[in-house]
């Protein structure tokens, strides 16, 4: 092996290793989805295909919910897409890792992008490095694998899993994102954008309680706009 491919392999495995905490959180979520899907009449192949194609927990759960409620195909797709819309913001922020790559690498890189990619970029930054393309792919591929395995496990177990809430597992995903905040904080310049993002989410969910996914996207965009129009000290 050449030196280049050795460093590529080590980037991939480092990404997978850094993904571990998010993978644990995703595993419980994936098992829950698999379980619910099989109870709602999804075949094993359908649950697996959905996890592989959509690769977004909340979007899958919402689409599943719409389908079982009899809302129809269009409503299910629209509701799920609304929840996945935030990934648009994530692949946008992955620009530096993707730019000037061959088209198939861009195609693969964006497919593996999730909320957890933000966590990986943050972990790399705390080491003083920019998240490389292969690092993000290694982490993303590992998460996808865990996601599909967890979905299968959940789909196969129709009953008899312990209540995840009793083990605090449902809090895992919240804890991951809360723990990201100190690292994302870049100093006083972030105060205004962050307050704007939080304020918009609070206001919007208060006015439109059933539109949480739009509250999220609107909050993030208005926070970013605030950062864009204000000048650094």
């Amino acid at each position: 092996m050449t030196a280049v491919s050795i460093s590529k392999m080590s980037e991939i495995s480092l990404g997978a290793r850094d993904m571990l905490p998010m993978a644990l959180a995703a595993a419980t979520y994936g098992a829950a989805f698999g379980l619910l899907a099989s109870q709602s009449g999804f075949s094993f192949g359908q649950s697996l295909s959905m996890s592989a194609l959509v690769f977004g927990g909340s979007a899958q759960l919402v689409a599943l919910d719409q389908l079982t409620a009899g809302a129809g195909i269009t409503a299910a797709i629209l509701a799920g897409a609304a929840l996945n819309m935030r990934i648009l913001l994530i692949t946008a922020s992955m620009r530096a890792a993707l730019v000037n790559r061959p088209w198939w690498q861009v195609a693969l890189g964006v497919y593996l992008a999730t909320d957890a990619s933000v966590a990986l970029m943050q972990t790399a930054k705390s080491r003083g490095a920019l998240a490389s393309y292969w690092y993000l792919c290694g982490g993303g591929a590992f998460l996808l694998l865990v996601w599909i395995l967890a979905t299968s496990l959940g789909a196969l177990m129709s009953q008899g899993i312990p209540d995840p809430a009793r083990l605090g597992l449902d809090f895992a995903i919240v804890a991951v994102f809360v723990a990201l905040l100190p690292g994302l904080w870049r100093g006083r310049n972030d105060l205004l954008p962050w307050s704007a993002a939080a304020g918009v989410v609070l206001m919007f969910t208060w006015m439109f309680p059933s539109q949480a996914s739009w509250a999220l996207i609107l909050g993030a965009i208005i926070g970013a706009i605030t950062a864009g129009v204000t000048h650094d000290d």
């Binding site: 962050w194 918009v200 950062a227 864009g228």
Partner: peptide, 21 residues
């Protein structure tokens, strides 16, 4: 560029607020 750099932080803040509600 300033907006794009602030975007990941704002997205996670929004996500945390939504989950903590």
């Amino acid at each position: 560029a300033r907006g794009m750099e602030a975007l990941p932080g704002c997205l996670i803040v929004a996500l945390v607020v939504l989950m903590m509600i």
